[in-house]
């Protein structure tokens, strides 16, 4: 099985959702289910990156993942859970505050100690 070192193609710091597509384009002619994605030397991955990685690669092709650092495994696990669960959209309604003047707005902002 061919081993793909993600840090060599992208970076050791995986931040952006759209960089998954850079990886996809780089692997275009390969059979993804026959690949091993190696996370060696990857220091960080954002939730957005992992979410996109899951949808583009894992969900469809189930490739092997190796050397996934614990801190990234936590995010991978969370992402895979949220694909299966129904999302809990928060439904509570907050009252909208509006003000009749700039002075009223400024006094409110000064009063809330934020």
């Amino acid at each position: 099985m061919e081993r793909i070192f993600i840090s060599q193609i992208l970076s050791d710091d995986l931040k952006s959702r759209s960089s998954v597509h850079t990886l996809y384009v780089a692997l275009k002619s390969k059979y993804i289910n026959e690949l091993v994605f190696d996370f060696s030397n990857v220091n960080f991955a954002s939730r957005s990156f992992i979410d996109e990685f899951y949808n583009v690669f894992i969900k469809e092709h189930r490739p092997k993942l190796e050397n996934v650092p614990d801190k990234i495994a936590v995010i991978l696990d969370a992402v895979s859970r949220t694909q299966e669960e129904n999302k809990k959209t928060i439904t509570k309604k907050s009252k909208i505050k509006s003000f009749n003047s700039v002075d009223e707005f400024c006094s409110y902002m000064t009063s809330i100690a934020f």
């Binding site: 509570k92 907050s94 009252k95 909208i96 505050k97 003047s101 707005f105 809330i112 100690a113 934020f114």
Partner: peptide, 15 residues
């Protein structure tokens, strides 16, 4: 929009 441990989801319309 403001939020912290004391202010819960404060939604404000600018002047």
């Amino acid at each position: 929009y403001l939020k912290d441990n004391h202010i819960e989801d404060d939604l404000i319309e600018l002047p």
